[in-house]
C-alpha cells in the first residue's frame, strides 16, 4: 500500500489524474482505509471549489471596460494593418 505521504503528494500534484488503473485503484484503497488522507483529499477538493466560487463572485468586466478593450484592439489592428498591409 502506498504511504500517506505518497498519497497526499500525488493528490496535491495532480499526479493521479494521469495514473494507470492499478495506481488509481491503490489510491482508492488507501483513501478507503485512511481517514486522515480522506480528510486531506476532501480539503484539497474543497479549496478548489471554494476558490472557484470566490472568483465567480467577481467574474465580469463592466460593459464600459469590455468596450474599451474592443476599441483598443480594433485600433491596434488598424495600426498594424497600416504598418504591414501584406499581413495575411
Amino acid at each position: 500500500m502506498m504511504s500517506c505521504k505518497e498519497t497526499t503528494e500525488g493528490i496535491a500534484t495532480d499526479r493521479f489524474a494521469s495514473a494507470g488503473f492499478f495506481t488509481r485503484l491503490s489510491l482508492r484503497f488507501h483513501l478507503f482505509m485512511c481517514r486522515h488522507c480522506r480528510s486531506y483529499a476532501s480539503q484539497i477538493r474543497s479549496l478548489g471549489d471554494t476558490t472557484r466560487c470566490l472568483c465567480d463572485d467577481d467574474p465580469c468586466l463592466s460593459p464600459k471596460a469590455r468596450q474599451a478593450i474592443l476599441d483598443s484592439c480594433l485600433e491596434a489592428a488598424s495600426r498594424e494593418e497600416a504598418a504591414d498591409p501584406k499581413a495575411e
Binding site: 504511504s3 500517506c4 505521504k5 486522515h36 480528510s39 486531506y40 483529499a41 476532501s42 480539503q43 474543497s46
Partner: peptide
Amino acid sequence: GGWSQPPTAADGRAI
C-alpha cells in the same frame, strides 16, 4: 511516510 500530524479537519465541507 505515515501521518505524524494529521490534518485537523474531519471533513473538507468545513471549508
